[in-house]
């Protein structure tokens, strides 16, 4: 063991290298390490949050689906009811219309019957008069016998 100025040289070198490390090596590396640690922590937190949100979204999705199904069912029921109503109303309308048409037809038939009857009566009356004329072999005085003729024709 032989001590010489190497000791002092080593101490100076040690101081210089330590200073260099302190100034230029340690801070950037430790900074990068801290930053990466933070990035990873943030990423993990974000992932956790995302998972939580997915869970929530899944819950909402189920609820929405259920609501949608329920709404659709309600709409279908309503539509069915409305359809039934429309059919019922249409039936009713048709029935009323039918009755109406029937009544009109009846009235028309009645009227035509009356007309035919009148016509027939007039014809019979004319026939009767013509018959009577022929029987009497003379001209019937229409004016004088109008009353009689009308009465006959009324009885027919």
């Amino acid at each position: 063991m032989n001590f010489n100025a190497t000791l002092i040289g080593q101490m100076i070198a040690f101081a210089v290298f330590t200073w260099f490390c302190l100034k230029f090596i340690w801070p950037p590396i430790i900074h990068a390490l801290e930053e990466r640690k933070k990035t990873i922590a943030d990423g993990l937190a974000a992932g956790e949050k995302g998972r939580h949100e997915l869970e929530l979204a899944r819950g909402r999705f189920v609820e929405l689906t259920r609501e949608g199904k329920q709404g659709a069912a309600e709409i279908i029921a309503l539509a069915q009811k409305r359809g039934d109503e429309i059919i019922d109303k249409a039936k009713e309308d048709a029935r009323l219309e039918g009755e109406h048409l029937l009544a009109a037809a009846r009235a028309e038939i009645e009227q035509e019957r009356l007309q035919a009857k009148e016509h027939l009566r007039k014809e019979v009356a004319a026939l009767a008069i013509a018959g009577a004329e022929q029987i009497l072999m003379r001209e019937v005085d229409r004016d004088a016998h109008n009353k009689v003729l009308e009465r006959i024709s009324a009885t027919l």
Binding site: I25, I29, A32, R36
Partner: peptide, 23 residues
Amino acid sequence: WSLVLGLVFSYLFYRVARQAHAG
């Protein structure tokens, strides 16, 4: 050798430290 190895240490670490990134 002490100085050479100190320089090796400083150079290696400095090269990394200069472009240290969080990626």
